[in-house]
Design a binder for these strands. Structure first.
Lengths: 379, 379
DNA sequence: GAAACTTTTGCACACGCTTGCAAAAAAGCG
DNA sequence: CGCTTTTTTGCAAGCGTGTGCAAAAGTTTC
């Protein structure tokens, strides 16, 4: 309200400003007094709501440009004024307003992570690694949760436009092509992780799912398994379907059929359900490739506790992701490892690469098999 | 570079703008051509890098204020102009620049989540729920990872100032008091989740750890346990220490001593290690309160696979957090449930509450015990 | 149809910052 | 010391938005 008051006083900009600051100061002191009446914070209250470069300039006795240059790497400032500015900034608790800076420069430094079900172990790990890497690259992550159903990815991408994000990284869902193009036209860069599609423009990171599936088949065969099954979710994500196709194809090369069961999401419960399906049929599988570790755990628990099977003696299992729980002794799951570090590094590297170069369009990474205890050595 | 060129052409603002737009268009087309030479995107290239309210105004034949008011809820615009504006905005792909809006209004709509080890199941769940709730409240979450060691929380809080966040929610770590005060003075609101401290100003959410510990003790006693142990990490987080103190005190009321073991972080491995410590001693505990579910799993696996114990016959266990894995059959852990929904709701509600009211300072929530299978019924 | 009132609209300034430009200061040089 | 070259500095315009104010347009009332 003191703001609106200063509005219709017609003074020179300088006078108005200092008046504004003084009245702001009064408010701050008053507010503080309510909170801790006992203490005497007289000195600390010198900063108003948010300290601006103007304030620092005034205190250091230099122009605002000097302040700006002090905080702009590579700008021309003499060592002396830089010192003075830094000192004043320190005293006042000044921080460059990135919002305003982003307004002038074309980049905001913001990168949006678009992700649903982010408490899934694999996703959580990815988000952690991404935020870390982005931070060390001088960027900051905005997290957009697309859990709710209403065309959420598109809404999310629109959000990224609101905040003028430099880039968006999609860990889940696929946007409408029109929206994608809108983002690209707005100068935004887009990274798709494990969600292959045919849109031109985004950087796509994928794993060699087919290759992994082949490795799984030969591992099962070496263990003497003959009845292969594949546990998938029924959402039909491209990378999951690629694993399924690869597995079936590789098995076919050895003249084996694959019992495919698809159910629900890629979660523990689904694996559990699939175990019930598989082991109430006439012929039981002796090897199951689970499209994801969580489903593998559900399947293992189902096999063990509902049907009394021993793993790996009666049943061999392979998962995918190598989440932390896979190394827990209760599961000790043989699984394919998501190269999280590589994914993250290549994403951020691409974001920082020269926009005009535009050579690289995608990365294909390898997921190595981590051997633990859910595939027996021999028959 | 075409930008820098327009800079030293001295034209009227209007002309300069349209020139800028045209040259931007040329660049966009050129860039696009490289990508998909086959297609003809002639029409779609009409939008330059980022569409501004000016562009929309020009196209709709109204003033820029009209555009602004159209996108400002509760502003005075006639239905007719609103229509025209919306139409133009749609056609051009206009999105309000929240950065600029945040510059004018005092609030940016940004809320920072400060968190380390965010791939921990409990933290991940909290982050997911928080981002969701913030979004439905019209705010957006910025994620700040404080994994690296260098005074990271303080650095993080400084980051939140850079982006003029309206608020920060701390899920891990505790900031220096000076920094906290700086944030508060800058008009930022702070929420501390499960990290009690004595700073005046932030909103603090805590659980009744002492009460939970008492419940655990009586549950163990009812099961006939007599040798109580407490598995803690050695980082000394306040809430963890509160659980420890509460457990010891409650046991003391029944004349029982507690064997306390502290080790490492609150992770699986630490629980595993603690099992090795406990079961290589002369007298074995028959009940262990683990400060967190992850440690409980490690301890269970250690007890089962390293020492051949049966749970709950030989050993009763209680955890804390009720993460998803606790309900998996391999563990089936009896544990205290973090009231994530309540935590999230009360945080966001406080953020939206009137700043000047300032009545509420903290919330104390209840963590109910979820009964599963790691405490036996009777002796 | 004029007066009184309400709604809508455009102008212009402000938000906090960057940056090109030209003037001022400092440094180098013969 | 004067001249040239380099570095530093302040000015002012601009980024894209919100909003008070007053003028314009529309509406009601008598």
């Amino acid at each position: 309200m003191c703001k609106s008051f200063t509005r219709h006083v017609s003074l020179s900009s300088g006078l108005l400003r200092s008046f504004n600051k003084i009245s702001g100061l009064v408010v701050a002191v008053a507010r503080k007094r309510v909170q801790d009446t006992a203490n005497n914070y007289g000195f600390m209250q010198l900063n108003k709501s948010f300290v601006s470069a103007d304030d620092v300039a005034k205190r250091a006795g230099v122009s605002r440009s000097a302040v700006s240059r002090t905080f702009t790497p590579g700008a021309s400032v003499s060592e002396e004024t830089r010192q003075r500015v830094m000192e004043a900034a320190q005293a006042l608790g000044y921080h460059v307003n990135q919002l305003a800076r982003g307004l002038m420069r074309s980049e905001s430094g913001i990168v949006c992570l678009v992700v649903s079900e982010m408490d899934t172990p694999y996703r959580a790990r990815l988000v952690r690694a991404l935020t870390h890497e982005l931070q060390t690259a001088g960027k900051i992550a905005m997290l957009i949760n697309t859990d709710r159903s209403d065309g959420s990815v598109d809404t999310a991408l629109r959000q990224t436009l609101h905040y003028r994000a430099d880039a968006s990284i999609l860990l889940s869902g696929l946007p409408d092509k029109a929206i994608t193009r809108l983002c690209l036209n707005s100068g935004q860069r887009i990274v798709l992780i494990n969600r292959d599609d045919d849109i031109e423009g985004p950087f796509r990171i994928n794993l060699d799912d087919g290759q992994a599936a082949r490795v799984a088949v030969s591992a099962f065969l070496r263990a003497g398994c003959r009845h292969l099954a594949f546990a998938n979710s029924d959402v039909g994500t491209p990378s999951l379907m690629a694993r399924e196709r690869g597995f079936i194809a590789a098995a076919a090369e050895f003249g084996l059929e694959v019992r495919v069961v698809r159910h629900g999401n890629t979660v523990y419960e689904s694996g559990r359900k699939i175990a019930q399906t598989l082991f109430t049929e006439a012929v039981w599988p002796d090897a199951v490739f689970c499209v994801n570790d969580l489903m593998a755990f559900g399947l293992m628990d189902g096999a063990r506790y509902d049907f009394g099977l021993n793993i790996p003696e009666d049943l061999c299992i392979v998962g995918f992701d190598d989440i932390e729980q896979s190394s827990w002794t209760s599961y000790n799951l043989t699984t394919f490892s998501q190269p999280v570090d590589e994914i993250v590094k290549s994403s951020v590297a691409w974001l920082q690469s020269d926009a005009t170069a535009g050579r690289v369009r995608s990365a294909n990474l390898h997921a190595p098999l981590i051997w633990r205890k859910t595939i027996r050595n021999k028959l």
